[in-house]
């Protein structure tokens, strides 16, 4: 019985631990996608992208994150910048 409980405990640690690691990896991947979107849509945070006509081709494959990017990344970048400089 004790051995069983031990194994059960280890199982949960393993299961939860793995899930955490997976989450972390997916989170990292997601942030890289955000970075890519920031480069493509840099115009939205005030930095022109002279290659927008070319990079727009990538948009269909990244647009699943478009709304999330607008809400979190773009907002946080703008917030950081504007809190330092104030709104024009």
């Amino acid at each position: 019985m004790r051995r069983f409980l031990n194994s059960l405990g280890l199982f949960f640690v393993g299961a939860l631990g793995t899930e955490n690691a997976t989450d972390k990896l997916l989170k990292k991947a997601r942030y890289l996608d955000f970075d890519l979107l920031t480069l493509i849509l840099s115009d939205e945070i005030g930095i022109p992208n002279p290659l927008y006509y070319h990079t727009v081709e990538l948009l269909p494959y990244l647009s699943g994150e478009l709304e999330a990017w607008r809400e979190s990344e773009k907002a946080s970048i703008l917030w950081r910048v504007l809190s330092e400089t104030g709104e024009p």
Binding site: N49, P50, L51, Y52, V56, L59, P60, L66, E67
Partner: peptide, 17 residues
């Protein structure tokens, strides 16, 4: 989502360069 993305794509017609 498609309309929002399409609008974003259409911006490319008049984008600088």
């Amino acid at each position: 989502l498609i309309e929002k993305v399409k609008n974003q794509i259409e911006l490319a017609y008049n984008s600088p360069g």
